[in-house]
Amino acid sequence: MKDRAKTAGSSSTRLKRILYTASGLLLLAPVYFTWSGLNPTPIQPLAQQALGPFTATPTPMDELPPYPQGNGFRKDYSVVFCDDCTQHIRVAHLAIQPNAPTLPENEDGILHGSRYLQHVHATAPAQVVSEDRLWLTIQDWKGQVWQTSWPVSSAGD
């Protein structure tokens, strides 16, 4: 009887110790994330392309596949335009799909940010296939629309 109580007590203590150690080790995570935040893995930008008077260079924010958001999927990019070009853009959208999109009326995949660096949650399919391309659609202040596209891998980069 005594042995059984002893066994039960020690196994409970052992489990507590294991959980305690695990929660303690969890505190190494902030150290790792601080280090990785200060030493980010550089991601290769896509090739610069021209769209009429503009040039654009998108860079994926990560090498992961599209993530679910709302009723669809998204893939994040940053986009750098030619110097002083952003102020000449009325609206711009980025999307991953097989065919050239029309300029959307909603804000899905709309480019936003500063004139030096734009950011976008591009619309994307759940799984990027070889037919898909990354489409950039720009409308300038005169209402003229410009488009270009890049091939994308299964991770959208």
């Binding site: 958001q69 709302g70 102020q87 009325r90 300029l103 009326e105 909603n106 804000e107 005169k142």
Partner: peptide
């Protein structure tokens, strides 16, 4: 994706001004 607040929808594209000569507004 359950919204906590409902910010206004973005401006309708057609409501944005247009610049005849392309000069930024």
């Amino acid at each position: 994706d359950i919204p906590l607040e409902s910010p206004p929808a973005p401006l309708v594209l057609s409501s944005l001004p247009v610049s005849a000569d392309g000069t930024p507004l």
